[in-house]
Nucleic acid binder design. Structure first.
Length: 419
DNA sequence: TCTGGGGTCCTAGGACCC
DNA sequence: TCTGGGGTCCTAGGACCC
């Protein structure tokens, strides 16, 4: 019988911040998105105060003041490092594993030959002991059911482990879970299905799969089958290269002039190019977009995307910056207050795979060696140590992160001190 | 005044072909 | 007055995920 465990870190970003600040263990706290814009992680104490996921920080300033809620800017270097440590521990406990996100992994526990509940508790204890990270464990026969069991582990169980492998356990789980907790059912689908009287995971599992497929999508059909214990989603052990790479940022303040937009777009193109080279691909189509804010109804709106084909597929930062800036020139209009820009790399391919364009300009000589050197220096000495002249270290548009914690585990000069 | 970033997959519709 | 059918490919947009 297929058996999956979903291991999910509790309040992951907040828990990372607490690893090196045990004094904060019971303090209400939140971690904010880039530019200190929205709440993206909340401690249990912050949840109890009614602070919602994704809530704009400025809207809860009073609440934060009144209850002494501690806020942190997101520190992705730290979170990425902690995440890698957790995965290392999990790999030792289940060799077949899918890293699903920065704070979640699916483990294949089929044929374990040990009692599942006990093994779930063992997983939890090992991760806690070796990394300090609290996790919940949901175990069932499909990935969708394991996700749901994990939800129950957090909400309904003292031990932090829920096993739902037997039919009666699964029925109880489905009847207990609101529709919106089902993996793959978002806000829109919840509203549509709700109108049909489908309110719980159990209700959804009772629907006719074929009818739901015709009325909604093949994805929902698979979700229904998975809820009934029929596996439709396989474990994905990774190594598939990405099909699209993007780098985009909101500005710390509105930008109106072309010059700072050029700086920002050039720096995003460079960052995207680094990611592209890290997976060893070249790119054949680049898109660049700029847009004004979307929340202020009184502000004139503008949003455009430019697509720039690369006739010679490339992963050279200089080529991608050039293409991005050419695209930007075509879509920039003065008179707007721009809030965000982004660069997307598409139609990715491995270098040997692409057909050379007979009339395309010749690729740059020694490009690969130069880029490899730049990447090596930036990897060892810090991102942005070597960069193109048109990419400033910091622009007026650069991200605001006023509340960032130290890089406890990833910067020599910010290591915690022990006295 | 202030509202994140990076992905995937699916579908519908249009262009194009024979 | 009458105006095919089926397949493929591409793109844009939407929904979902964390």
């Amino acid at each position: 019988m297929p058996t999956y465990a979903l291991v999910d870190c509790n309040n992951f970003y907040v828990s990372c911040e607490r690893l090196f600040r045990p004094d904060l263990r019971t303090v209400p706290m939140v971690v904010l998105s880039n530019n200190d814009g929205c709440v993206v992680s909340r401690s249990n104490e912050a949840k109890a105060l009614g602070i919602g996921m994704g809530e704009p920080f400025f809207k809860i300033r009073d609440l934060v003041q009144a209850h002494g809620v501690l806020a942190f800017s997101s520190n992705y270097a730290l979170y990425g490092d902690v995440s890698a440590r957790v995965v290392r521990v999990l790999r030792g406990l289940a060799p077949r594993l899918e890293v699903y996100s920065i704070d979640e992994s699916f483990l294949d526990l089929a044929g374990l030959g040990r009692p599942l509940a006990g093994y779930g508790r063992h997983i939890r204890a090992e991760v806690q002991l070796l990394t300090g990270m609290p996790v919940g464990v949901g175990i069932s026969t499909t990935k969708t059911l394991a996700k749901l069991a994990n939800w129950a582990a957090k909400r309904r169980s003292q031990s932090g482990v829920v096993v739902a492998t037997r039919p009666e356990q699964q029925a109880a789980l489905l009847k207990d879970a609101p529709l919106g907790e089902v993996w793959g059912v978002g806000r829109k689908l919840q509203a549509h299905l709700g109108a049909l009287g489908v309110k719980t995971a159990w209700d959804l599992a009772q629907q006719d799969a074929w009818t739901m497929r015709k009325q909604f999508s093949v994805v929902l059909e698979k979700t229904i089958r998975e809820l009934r214990g029929e596996p439709c989603f396989a474990l994905d052990e990774g190594s598939e290269p990405k099909q699209m790479i993007t780098c985009s940022r909101s500005f710390s303040r509105r930008v109106t002039e072309l010059a700072p937009l050029r700086e920002a777009v050039a720096s995003y193109a460079c960052r995207a190019a680094e990611k592209l080279r890290a997976q060893g691909d070249v790119c054949q189509l680049l898109q660049v977009y700029i847009r004004t804010g979307v929340f202020n109804p009184d502000e004139p709106r503008y949003a455009r995307t430019a697509s720039v084909p690369l006739h010679t597929p490339s992963n050279d930062s200089r080529d991608l910056v050039q293409a991005a800036l050419a695209g930007l020139e075509g879509i920039y209009r003065p008179g707007y207050r721009y809030q965000k820009a982004g660069v997307m790399l598409m139609n990715l391919a491995s270098p040997g795979q692409v057909q050379a364009d007979l009339f395309a300009p010749a690729p740059r000589p020694r490009s690969a060696a130069l880029m490899a050197t730049v990447d090596r220096i930036n990897t060892s000495m810090g991102r942005g140590t070597v960069r193109l002249a048109r990419v400033p270290a910091l622009g007026g548009w650069s991200m605001k992160q006023e509340l960032r914690s130290p890089g406890y585990t990833c910067r020599w000069d910010e290591l915690p001190r022990v006295r």
